[in-house]
Design a protein around this nucleic acid. Structure first.
Lengths: 146, 146
DNA sequence: AACTCTAAGTGCAACGTGCATATAGTCCTC
DNA sequence: GAGGACTATATGCACGTTGCACTTAGAGTT
């Protein structure tokens, strides 16, 4: 048949108010930060959470953190020992392994490539003249210009 | 019971050679880059793929890209029209909408926060003295030190 | 004994992604 | 003009990560 160019917006949809990039950090990015934290100092879950917040990762849930820790132990990057807490129940205290250090280093180079890609993004974004953008403005919302 | 401190590594596992951070870019990070590409110039799938590679995102599959494009159209950030290709079948050509611009801007500020967090990571990582690390080395693998 | 706090772990559903595969139109060749 | 190659877009399925809500369990307090 010759109806090769269908109606332009065959699926115009009701625009469901998707929030802008709420996922933070993006998936799969938690492990390197956790590993860095433990490499600086052996720690248990709650302490690691504080490290993460200090690094700027404030959106992490404990369930995700605990599962990530167990996974990294399974992978051989971390080891854990139960230690009695000074007040409260025992904690599982993690230490980084040699293979964890190796993984941390390669993850760091990955993160660096990451950063370069983001830099490339802004190289194009900041240069795009499309609409008058606030000179050093923190890229706020700019609404639908009239 | 009182067996409150279980055997230290109750689940020591065979270390299954997990690759270091193969996910690239991390999940949910594709949309801003796609939106930036289209904002620079109306384009169809294949062209957008080239943009992504130029930005450093070389691991994107077409299936993911197409689905992301359709999703962003559903979200109202992109519009598409079918246009006959000079050689080959018709292409779905995307243009960015006003609401797409708004979303791009907020995503950009998100990416910027991202970059700052990565900078914080390296602030700690580069300063950690644990093992002798190459001075300005691009954080290569360093093997298990003997 | 009951309650609260600390610390860790689990069941479930949602979502994005890769891989393989499918559909369909255009161009080239015999 | 039939078959094949190429271009372009799209879909089915399975997998892994995540958030939310909930659970387990010991320690300290009243």
């Amino acid at each position: 048949m010759t109806d090769q160019l269908p109606t332009t917006n065959e699926n115009a949809e009701p625009i469901e108010e998707r929030e802008p990039l709420t996922g933070w950090p993006p998936r799969d990015m938690l492990a390197p930060f956790v590993l860095l934290a433990v490499s600086l100092q052996r720690a248990h879950g709650y302490v690691i959470e504080d490290y993460l917040r200090a690094l700027g990762l404030f959106g992490i849930t404990m369930s995700t953190l605990y599962r990530t820790l167990r996974q990294m132990e399974k992978d051989g990057f971390l080891e854990s020992t139960w230690e009695p807490g000074p007040t409260g129940p025992a904690r599982r205290v993690y230490t980084i392994t040699d293979s964890g250090h190796v993984w941390l280093d390669s993850s760091a180079s990955m993160l660096n490539a990451y950063r370069q890609t983001i830099d490339r993004f802004f190289g194009l974004y900041d240069a795009s003249p499309r609409v008058a953008r606030q000179p050093e403005g923190s890229t706020d919302e700019k609404e639908t210009r009239p």
